[in-house]
Structure formats: structure tokens, C-alpha cells
Simulated scan of single mutants.
Amino acid sequence: MGELIDKIKGNVNEAVGKAKQAMADKDPATRTDKDAKMEAEGAAQELKGKAQQFKGKVKGALGDDI
């Protein structure tokens, strides 16, 4: 059961992270510090999601006893 929960949390975090990165303004002429912060937060959240998915895969391979 823990495997599935980790994979779901990972997918959600990865999707939200990608959305934050997409919402940040990329145009150098209009980009603000807020946009840079949002993009960085999105990248970190996406990475967290990937780590959670990996954790779920490891739990699946070794069992939920981890």
C-alpha cells in the first residue's frame, strides 16, 4: 500500500512542479524575482516528486517493509 501512496504523491508533486515552472514568466524583459522564485520552487517540487516515485518503485521491488 505504501508503494502506491508514494507513487501517487510523486505524480502530484511532479505535476504541480511542472505547472509552477510553466506559469513563471520566461521573458527576460518582464521577468521578476517572483517568477524566478516560482520557477525554482517548481523545479524543486518536480524533483521531490521524482524522488517519491523512485521510493515507491523501491518499496514495490523490496516490499512495503521498508
Rank of each mutant, 00 (worst) to 15 (best):
A61H: 10
K7D: 05
L62G: 05
K9I: 09
K20S: 04
K55L: 12
K59N: 15
R31G: 04
A22W: 01
A44R: 08
K50L: 13
N13K: 12
D64I: 11
L62I: 13
P28F: 00
A22S: 10
K18Y: 03
I8N: 08
T30N: 07
E14Q: 08
K50F: 08
A51W: 00
G2N: 15
K55P: 05
Q52I: 01
K59W: 08
G63R: 11
K59E: 11
D35P: 02
A36G: 06
Q21E: 12
K7L: 09
G10H: 01
K48E: 05
D65E: 15
E41M: 07
V16F: 02
K59M: 14
Q53K: 14
D35H: 07
D6V: 02
G56R: 01
P28V: 04
G60F: 00
G63Y: 07
E46H: 05
N11G: 13
A43W: 03
Q21I: 03
A61D: 10
P28Q: 01
I5C: 11
K18V: 12
F54Q: 14
Q52R: 11
A40H: 03
G17V: 01
Q45L: 15
G2I: 14
L47N: 02
D35A: 05
G49A: 08
I5Q: 13
K55R: 12
E41N: 08
T32C: 06
D25T: 04
A51T: 04
Q21W: 03
K55Y: 15
N11L: 12
L62D: 08
K9S: 12
G49F: 00
K9V: 08
A61I: 09
R31V: 07
E3W: 14
L4I: 15
G10S: 10
A44G: 01
G42P: 08
I5N: 10
D64G: 14
Q53E: 12
K50D: 06
A29G: 02
K7Y: 06
A24E: 01
K7E: 08
M38Q: 09
G63S: 12
D65T: 14
E14I: 03
Q21S: 11
E41W: 02
A24S: 06
A29T: 11
A40I: 02
M1D: 15
A36Q: 04
K37A: 12
